[in-house]
Amino acid sequence: MSATKRLSEFEELAFKHADQLFRVALRLVRNRAKAEDLVQETYFQAWKSFHRFESGTNLRAWLFKIMFNSHYTDLRRNKFEMVPVEETIAETLAYDPPTPQHLTEEEVLAALERLPREFQLPVILADIEELSYNEIAEVMQIPKGTVMSRLHRGRKILRMELVNYARSYGLKVAEQ
């Protein structure tokens, strides 16, 4: 296959994930120009190793993995290296009130923004971008158990924020 034809094939398959990658990149670098750079770099890297990509496997998860890897490399180069700290088991918050109904996009977005970054990314990857827990573990380079505990806690914190919000505005929260 000619290089141009292969490139067209790559573009056809990979470009449809650009919006998803861009959204997550924005969470990683928090600046539109930098996010665009990161996604461009991701596609560039992906294209370079496209010959190694096995058709039939999940291209989207593969692109995410390249993006996180590239981001981690940038951080390692520019910032400081972390000694891995053993993950503490997320404590179960005993109180789990019912999830409020009729929430607006603004309300849930505000709650998402307040979520600590550690929990925000897994929640975005699972609940918005619909990656599987295994894929998230691979993409973020953390154990699946860690993904699950962060998701569990992140989703709970998010709901609690929304419950508190609903209460403060007198919205109906069904009591059990």
């Binding site: 959204r23 665009e36 996009e105 977005l109 609940d127 918005i128």
Partner: peptide, 10 residues
């Protein structure tokens, strides 16, 4: 949540 976040595009 999905509706709110996916409003952002490249």
């Amino acid at each position: 949540l999905r509706g709110a976040v996916t409003a952002t595009t490249a």
